[in-house]
Simulated scan of single mutants.
Amino acid sequence: MKHLPILIADDDEDDRFLIKAAFEECGSTIPLFFVQDGLELMQYLNNENAYADANVYKQPSLILLDLNMPKKDGREIIQEMRSNSNFKAIPIVVLSTSNAPSDIKTCYELGANSFITKPSSFEGLLEIIKNLQQFWFVTASLPQ
């Protein structure tokens, strides 16, 4: 089955590199698109500016969302997506350095589907990516 892309929003260049490397290490064939902040994420979803070509920038099957980003943070993105009928069904997995109970609670209250604290090692990230792929692309059914 051909999957729609995963959209990854993270303002940290090193984290984007490690996430991409972890997907590659896991043998993933799912297309990945990266954005650097919440504003860019919404431009992607709305096919605006650099993301105008809807044939290239397809609606994602899943969003991996960093919480603390410039322009629009993860909380604002969750709220904006969940209030828009075009985007409310797209699963959002928060992948953040935060493990604060208040951040976790807020994200779930706003409509995040999952909250994962970024691990401190690449091996930990590999395990998370393996589990994400298994759950979201094998076990769960996603909207098309």
Rank of each mutant, 00 (worst) to 15 (best):
M1H: 13
M1R: 13
K2L: 13
K2P: 14
L4T: 12
I6C: 10
I6N: 14
I8N: 09
I8S: 08
A9C: 15
D10G: 12
D10R: 07
D15E: 13
R16G: 08
R16E: 03
R16H: 13
F17A: 08
A22C: 06
A22M: 11
A22V: 06
E24R: 14
E24G: 11
E25N: 07
G27H: 08
I30H: 13
I30C: 11
I30W: 15
P31L: 12
L32F: 11
F33E: 15
V35S: 10
D37R: 05
G38T: 06
E40I: 00
L41C: 10
M42P: 09
Y44C: 04
L45F: 07
L45V: 07
N46T: 09
E48Q: 00
E48M: 03
A50L: 04
A52G: 02
A52P: 00
D53C: 03
D53S: 03
D53G: 03
A54L: 13
N55H: 15
N55W: 11
N55P: 14
V56K: 15
V56A: 14
K58P: 13
K58C: 13
K58F: 11
K58I: 08
P60V: 02
P60C: 00
S61V: 08
L62H: 14
I63K: 02
I63R: 06
L64I: 10
L67H: 02
L67G: 05
M69W: 07
R75V: 06
R75F: 15
E76R: 02
I78M: 02
Q79V: 01
M81N: 00
S83K: 05
S83W: 03
S83Y: 05
N84F: 09
N86W: 03
F87S: 04
F87M: 03
F87P: 00
F87H: 05
K88R: 15
K88F: 12
A89I: 09
I90L: 04
S96A: 08
S96I: 00
T97P: 08
T97L: 14
A100I: 05
A100T: 10
S102P: 14
S102W: 05
S102D: 05
D103Y: 07
D103N: 02
D103P: 15
K105T: 01
K105H: 04
E109M: 00
G111H: 03
A112D: 06
A112M: 00
N113G: 12
S114L: 07
S114I: 01
S114H: 10
F115P: 01
I116N: 11
I116H: 11
T117M: 07
T117P: 15
P119K: 03
S120D: 15
S120Q: 14
S120Y: 14
S121M: 05
E123R: 06
L125I: 09
L126M: 11
I128L: 10
I128Q: 15
L132Q: 08
Q133V: 03
Q133S: 06
Q134M: 01
Q134A: 07
F135G: 13
F135L: 15
W136K: 04
F137R: 08
F137H: 04
F137G: 04
V138S: 11
T139Q: 06
T139D: 04
T139V: 12
T139Y: 05
A140D: 06
L142D: 07
Q144V: 12
Q144F: 13
